[in-house]
């Protein structure tokens, strides 16, 4: 199951990289509202990437890195004595 999940997310990452540049619009000079169509694709794609990254951070964060993959429970013990709760915290801007 974990293995399948890993392969699935890897595939998603590859697709995100592969189509950030719309190769299928190569040499295309059409514009929509004064902006090249290929730039519209890119803008939309980056928005999609953000949503996908957000989903990943909600559902699969830790995949391939932490043995259990679940990060909702348990904290990493701090070897430096700086801060113990690693899920929350940080300076406020």
């Amino acid at each position: 199951m974990r293995h399948l999940q890993l392969v699935g997310w890897l595939a998603v990452a590859v697709v995100l990289c592969a189509l950030a540049i719309p190769w299928f619009l190569w040499d295309d000079a059409r514009t929509v509202a004064g902006i090249p169509l290929w730039l519209w694709w890119h803008i939309g794609w980056m928005g999609l990437a953000s949503v996908v990254f957000w989903l990943f951070s909600r559902r699969a964060w830790g995949l391939g890195i932490e043995p259990n993959g679940t990060t909702q429970t348990g904290n990493v013990t701090s070897g430096t004595g700086t801060g113990t709760d690693t899920d929350t915290g940080g300076d406020q801007p």
């Binding site: 928005g47 964060w61 690693t86």
Partner: peptide
Amino acid sequence: AAGSRTVLKRSFALWPILCVLLFV
């Protein structure tokens, strides 16, 4: 230097939007 895991998660998801907002 991140303060927490949540900080890393949020910045990860916001990254593509921030880039497109400046570069375009």
